[in-house]
Simulated assay, not measured.
Amino acid sequence: MTDDVPVTEAPTAPTTQARLPDAILADVPVVDTAALDPPTTELPTTAAAVGDEVETEEVDTRPLDELLDDLYHGQERISQADIYRRAVAAELPAQLLSRLNALPQGEYAVDEVTDLLGGSTG
Score class of each variant (00 low, 15 high):
L117H: 00
L20V: 08
D111M: 02
V54M: 10
Q105A: 15
A102M: 04
T41A: 08
T41W: 07
A109N: 03
T41H: 12
A23S: 14
L43R: 14
T2M: 09
A10S: 09
D3G: 08
Q95L: 15
D60W: 06
A47H: 07
E112G: 06
V54F: 03
T114W: 03
D4Q: 14
V30M: 06
A18Q: 11
T114H: 08
R86H: 14
T8D: 09
M1N: 10
R77Y: 09
S98V: 01
R62Q: 11
E42V: 06
L20A: 13
P21Q: 11
D22H: 01
D65T: 00
T61V: 15
A49H: 03
E57V: 14
L64H: 06
V28K: 11
E53L: 06
A10M: 11
E107N: 10
D52P: 13
D22L: 09
D69Y: 14
E76H: 12
Q75A: 08
V7S: 11
T56Y: 11
Q75H: 15
A94P: 08
D32F: 02
Q17V: 06
R85P: 04
E9L: 08
D69W: 08
V30Y: 13
A87R: 01
D69I: 10
Y72F: 14
A81N: 07
V88D: 09
G74W: 11
D82T: 06
P38R: 12
R77M: 07
A94V: 14
A47Q: 07
T12S: 12
V59A: 06
V5E: 12
T45P: 05
I78Q: 01
G106I: 05
L68M: 10
L43P: 03
A34K: 04
L117V: 00
M1G: 13
P14I: 05
T16N: 10
P44I: 07
M1L: 09
T8Y: 07
D4G: 03
E91R: 09
R85C: 13
P39R: 11
L20G: 01
P39G: 06
A48S: 08
E9N: 15
A90E: 05
E112V: 00
E91W: 04
P21S: 07
V7H: 13
T2I: 07
L43Q: 06
E53N: 10
L36S: 10
T40R: 05
T8N: 08
L96I: 12
T46E: 12
D65G: 01
L71C: 01
S120C: 01
Q80C: 01
V110A: 11
E58K: 15
D37G: 05
E91K: 04
R86N: 12
V5Q: 11
E66M: 05
A47M: 14
R86G: 01
L97E: 02
L71P: 02
P63L: 04
V28G: 07
L36I: 09
L100K: 01
A94D: 13
L100C: 04
P21L: 15
E76C: 08
Q95P: 10
R86Y: 08
D4R: 15
D3A: 09
A18I: 12
L97Y: 04
R99D: 00
Q75E: 15
V110N: 02
T46H: 13
S120G: 04
A90C: 06
L116V: 00
V54I: 09
P104Y: 03
A90G: 03
V30K: 12
A102L: 09
L20F: 11
A109D: 03
R62G: 02
G74E: 03
